[in-house]
């Protein structure tokens, strides 16, 4: 009886080790892609159009069976066509109303409970730049806003995975802590049609050792062939 237990234990240990060893050197990608387009056509009003996309991707590599690191990149672009009536005069806005780029690096440590299931967590750094144009009808003060925003962040996050097969993992985020957050925003608010402009520069910082439990978001991860 003892021998059987010992043997089965050895077998389990071996199979787990083999399962993990396969991870070393593996490269993976996960991405979210969003596209939107909408068109509003009202009687007696000109057509209004909104469109945009966002792509966020992370590329990682397992250095060992329990350690992975990689890059996050993201980009988004939004545009619209709208007709407004500031001061009763008709004005048409057409073009890009926002875009953003972000990049970052992440480190993840894994704890594999079986060859199917495990958890991971680790720190990440990110820098985000975005440009936003708020049309007068979208801002509370009826001014045309142009905003440049840059924000470096440092945090830790945790997640869990379930291996669907050799190529695909299902991942879920479990918790996130934004330990350090900095942001710098330049906002120019222009009154139409006079062109008088107010300018605001804002610097924010936050050091918060808080753990936030997010609403669980699911993702898919694809492993490349060697």
């Amino acid at each position: 009886m003892k021998k059987i237990i010992l043997l089965s234990w050895l077998f389990t240990a071996c199979s787990i080790t083999i399962g993990f060893a396969q991870l070393e050197g593996k490269k993976f990608v996960s991405a979210t892609v969003g596209l939107n387009f909408n068109n509003t056509n009202q009687d007696e009003y000109p057509t209004a159009t909104n469109y945009g996309y966002n792509i966020d991707a992370s590329f990682g590599k397992f250095k060992t069976a329990n350690k992975a690191s990689g890059w996050n990149i993201g980009t988004s672009l939004y545009g619209q066509k709208a007709t407004l009536y500031p001061d009763g005069t008709r004005e048409t806005f057409e073009g890009i109303t926002g875009f953003g780029v972000s990049t970052g690096y992440f480190w993840q440590h894994y704890k594999h409970f079986s060859d199917k299931f495990g958890i991971f967590g680790g720190p990440h750094v990110n820098v985000l730049y975005s440009y936003t144009k708020l049309l007068p009808n979208q801002s509370s003060d009826n001014l045309l806003h142009r905003q440049h925003h840059i924000s470096p962040q440092f945090g830790v996050s945790a997640g869990a995975y379930y291996a669907l097969n050799e190529r695909w993992w299902l991942t879920a985020s479990l918790g996130i802590a934004n330990l350090l957050y900095l942001s710098y925003t330049i906002d120019e608010a222009e009154a139409r049609p006079t062109g008088n402009t107010n300018k605001t520069k804002t610097f924010d910082y936050k050091l918060t050792p808080n753990l936030t439990l997010p609403s669980v978001s699911l993702g898919l991860r694809y492993f490349f062939k060697d």
Partner: peptide
């Protein structure tokens, strides 16, 4: 021990 800090600096200029 624990610590937290946060703040905002802003500069608003009108025409």
């Amino acid at each position: 021990a624990t610590i937290s800090a946060e703040g905002t600096l802003s500069n608003f200029e009108t025409y």
